[in-house]
Nucleic acid binder design. Structure first.
Lengths: 187, 187
DNA sequence: ATAAACTTTCAATAATTTCTGAAAGTTCAT
DNA sequence: ATGAACTTTCAGAAATTATTGAAAGTTTAT
């Protein structure tokens, strides 16, 4: 399998970035390749296109499955497994956020909760525990927000953004709304 | 310098997690230590508390500076540099988001823009380019949203969350508001 | 100008992560 | 039950990333 110049740039770039997004280079490349392919690919296609060993493809596919990022398809009369990306691009982003949250935020939240449990032994420990609580609260807020954002469908989100209406604008609309209700009462 | 048991757990955990958040173990540990310390620390304090070489402390401090996460303080009559975390916990989170955006999203956006420039050579390239555009749009939306969120002060954000009002709730308020304006007209 | 008290640099080394490929495992048709 | 066509596993090799510590650099006081 030959990649076009464009696809190649994309795939390699995604490989480099992928490692910053929580999975390794190969996993990133494979996923990128699957996303821009107009048909599902089998392991040998992938191994050949990306010049990586068959074993590596197998491991990476497994990793992608653990992130729930791919589907496995079968073609009648063909014993091979064909892989394709699961869901929309928006779904992908959600999965990645979700998975990262599980791996990176949840354990921290749970540790911080534990460390709050018993009371500080002295002044400096009180200070430390206070900071830990701050971080805990922040992480919890972030977690809640991201859950909210995931609940929104992307079309709605996009329309809002395109209108130039950011969160602050929405918040001010909320204020106006409250105000407007008060005005009603005062009429 | 001796760390209390609690601080030690926190610092080591932060070290492990740090590596997932874009900086390495040592950098994470140092930052965590500075955050929970009630006074600024100098390089030897850090080196001793964390059992890492003096050189490593120097490199890591430099890294933290590049993330704009620490302040350098001086104490009269003392030649040493004393380090402390810069800004609030919320500021820290913003810095980390911001820095990661620069390193992880911006380069991708710029590549994807470039790849859109010339028109597809064939059908399959058209498909690929279309997917790339989708990803581009998504990343742009995320970037805009995160910019908006950063503009909000944390207190406001927190109050909103505590009220149980997520984004979707706010959006529905927005709808009600629009509706209410229409009602006015029809009155 | 010197020396003391620091910080920074960087080549060598250590630790960690990723990748390969041969061998073992699985599934299916006959 | 066998073998063909696949996939998975995993020990060792390769690549990458982090750390040390000695030497060089900087700053300040005298």
């Amino acid at each position: 399998m030959q990649m076009s110049q464009k696809v190649e740039s994309f795939v390699y770039h995604f490989g480099e970035m992928g490692s910053k997004w929580g999975f390794n280079r190969t996993v990133g490349q494979i996923y990128a390749l699957l996303v821009v392919s107009d048909k599902p690919l089998h392991a040998n296609d992938i191994s050949e296109a990306l010049n990586i060993s068959r074993g590596n493809v197998s491991m990476s596919i497994k990793e992608l499955q653990s992130w729930q990022l791919i589907n496995i398809n079968h073609i009648p009369k063909d014993r091979k497994e064909y892989y394709s990306p699961k869901g929309s691009i928006w779904d992908m982003a959600n999965r990645v956020f979700e998975e990262r949250r599980k791996r990176e935020i949840d354990p921290t939240l749970s540790l911080l909760r534990d460390l709050q449990l018993d009371s500080p032994a002295d002044e400096s420990e009180a200070f430390a525990q206070d900071k830990m609580r701050e971080i805990h609260d922040l992480l919890e807020t972030i977690t809640q927000w991201s859950a909210e954002l995931q609940r929104l469908d992307p079309a709605k989100l996009n329309t809002l953004m395109k209108l130039g209406a950011g969160v602050s604008k929405i918040l001010s609309i909320k204020d106006q709304f409250k105000k407007s209700k008060v005005d009603h009462k005062n009429e």
